[in-house]
């Protein structure tokens, strides 16, 4: 973990071109085009059911798009990882959970102990190393999920609402870990519907609604001057009361405020 430079050759940028995902004939992600470059932390926001988690799963390769393409610059084997909203802990100890991920990714055996020691220290879980993972609190399990992903030194880390259901103190700890991961050279792409968290963590914000990308902007500009009126309603907490146009708004009828 002392090596802060991203592994070479880089898998970024990640390009999504006209991506669509359908389930049971319903288009859940629509005409999604976007590029994730090196550097900034991207936070994807939007109301429940907007397709945020689905988008991360598509990018991470857990589900294939129904249409369009998702292209990494180089083959992404083992270079991106994901932490889920509800982390799944294997029925073994905290350190064995990390060891499992290392073995699975064929990390040099001689480095196992050092990596485990390091990520457990950095996530504040060292004292719990021998404990069964599934008896940890939800917050501790989420930290372990981050530690397990971090141990793999991914170039890109997808985080699906990593602090949903956590109290403010646990949320703060998790955000500190996310910061540390970012500072060590990992590209963060995460979802949240916590606007405060988006302000704290994001360098750029992607606002999606009903599977469409409606705005992609630097954080300051997004929160001070959102260009899309749905995004503005969401930022102001008014989205629930926002009346949809009669044709249910697609990007072609997206109203820009200017």
């Amino acid at each position: 973990m002392t090596d802060v430079s991203p592994p070479s050759p880089s898998i970024l940028p990640l390009k999504l071109d006209n991506v669509e995902f359908k389930a049971d004939g319903v288009r859940l992600i629509k005409d999604f085009t976007c590029t994730f470059n090196h550097g900034p932390r991207s936070v994807i926001i939007g109301p429940n059911g907007a397709g945020k988690s689905l988008l991360l799963r598509l990018c991470h390769g857990l589900i294939p798009p129904s249409h369009g393409s998702i292209n990494w610059t180089t083959p992404p084997a083992s270079k991106h990882a994901m932490v889920f909203q509800r982390p799944v802990m294997l029925r073994r100890s905290v350190e064995a959970n990390i060891l499992y991920a290392l073995k699975l990714n064929r990390v040099d055996r001689s480095r196992h102990d050092a990596i485990i020691e390091q990520v457990l220290s950095q996530t504040g879980l060292k004292r719990l190393a021998k404990k069964p993972a599934r008896v940890l609190s939800f917050g501790e399990q989420q930290k372990l999920a981050l530690a397990r992903a971090w141990a793999l030194k991914p170039e890109v880390l997808f985080l699906d609402e990593p602090t949903a259901s956590l109290d403010p103190s646990a949320t703060h700890s998790v955000e500190q870990i996310i910061d540390a991961i970012h500072n060590q050279g990992t590209r963060i792409i995460m979802t949240t519907h916590d606007l405060g968290q988006a302000r704290r963590l994001a360098d750029e914000v992607l606002f999606i609604h009903r599977g469409r990308l409606l705005e992609h902007a630097p954080t300051t500009r997004f929160f001070n001057k959102p260009e899309n009126d749905l995004a503005e309603a969401f930022v102001n907490g008014d989205l629930l009361w926002w009346k949809l146009g009669k044709d249910n708004r697609g990007p072609q009828n997206k109203r820009q405020k200017k």
């Binding site: 799963r57 991470h60 857990l62 083992s78 990882a81 994901m82 889920f84 982390p87 799944v88 294997l90 499992y100 991920a101 699975l104 990714n105 397990r148 793999l152």
Partner: peptide, 16 residues
């Protein structure tokens, strides 16, 4: 059902 996404995310094939 519980493990699939997590294991696939970590790089496990069904055989593994």
């Amino acid at each position: 059902l519980e493990y699939e996404e997590q294991l696939r995310s970590l790089g496990a094939t069904p055989a593994r």
